[in-house]
Write a protein that binds this DNA or RNA. Structure first.
Lengths: 189, 189
DNA sequence: TTTATTATGTAGACCAATTGTTATAATGGT
DNA sequence: ACCATTATAACAATTGGTCTACATAATAAA
């Protein structure tokens, strides 16, 4: 009872997990409907444009989720460098806890993959990176950093984190993330 | 005449380009044989184990190619930071020149994708990252940096570069790479 | 030197399985 | 009766992979 729109939620949940751990092309619609225990009819009922629309939804939803988390960490520390370090290490712990198999929402390497699919998906991924960068930059500006410098450093933080996550997932080891966190103060100084 | 093993070369060349720009799963065998103008018979003659064996060959070959390039840049400058900066900016120019569509061999985000395919591919990608890191670390150690610190900083450089490349390819803009290069001295100091 | 024999590649038709997608029928609550 | 949702079956297209036929070149036997 009262299972009104939870089929949609189940689909988006599992699809997000699969897209971000396996990749867009590696994830089949059949696997999504099997894992989410939802019928294929529902998938095309909620996402008439199919896989691409579903992916777009997953990207936007995950992006917002992460932005919220990032904002939380950036606000809850007096020193920006410490905030970023906490954020990175929390993600590292999360990844390790799930044996590098769970949804590590920041791992946006799907961006390049989906960029080849359609212009719409590429634009969505662009926005994701820009949003994250903005959150960090705004915090730095508030600290008195000049705007242009802040944008630049925020971009570096995002890049470093994405790259470290890529290495960590490949090697199934949080060491690259630890090294990244350690270097943050030197970058933001 | 004398066209002995150039079919193999053609296959590996085009397959590398496609794998590293589109991704492993997004690249079909049919596209490879069409683009390389080689018949499927030849593909399975040179790579009896199919797609996976071909991918392994592409990864190893590209990895060595990049390692050679990286080594070249690391040797040809007196100051390590300057060497890394030159390397990053040369890659940025290369990417821009091809409108972000050519083979940007450093973009190893396929690593995560292929990591899901087989243990063998994952191990290969791990080795790639370790090799690149070693090249940078050795140069830093030669400069008098302590071994452990050197390893850590080398890992950061690799992460930062990979992440910046990810952003650059997504946004079709070299700005993230420029920002990354600018930060290198602060990291290696 | 001519003739067999065997490697080495090329060429592409063919295969079962799966892909994303569509269409239509059946459900069930209001 | 209505409408939102679910449930199937089928769709063409493509996937990675196998198979056999064929050409050429190298080697061995006569």
């Amino acid at each position: 009872m009262s299972n009104k729109p939870n089929a949609r939620e189940a689909i988006v949940d599992t699809a997000s997990r699969l897209f971000f751990t396996q990749g867009y092309h590696a994830t089949g619609l059949n696997q999504i409907i099997k894992d989410s225990e939802s019928p294929k009819g529902s998938l095309y009922y909620y996402f008439p444009h199919g896989k691409e629309e579903l992916a777009l939804t997953c990207i936007n939803r995950t992006s917002e989720e992460v932005a919220r988390l990032l904002r939380h960490y950036m606000e809850s520390e007096a020193v920006p460098a410490q905030a970023v370090q906490n954020f990175i290490m929390s993600m590292a712990n999360e990844a390790e806890k799930s044996s590098f198999e769970g949804l590590v929402p920041f791992s946006f390497w799907v961006a390049v993959e989906t960029s080849c699919v359609s212009h719409e998906l590429r634009t969505a991924c662009q926005c994701v990176f820009r949003d994250w960068q903005d959150i960090i930059a705004k915090r730095l500006i508030r600290e008195g950093v000049q705007e242009e410098t802040a944008e630049c450093k925020a971009s570096v933080v995002v890049s470093l984190f994405e790259g470290a996550l890529l290495q960590a997932l490949t090697c199934r080891n949080i060491q690259p993330l630890e090294a990244a966190a350690e270097c943050i103060p030197a970058i933001l100084a």
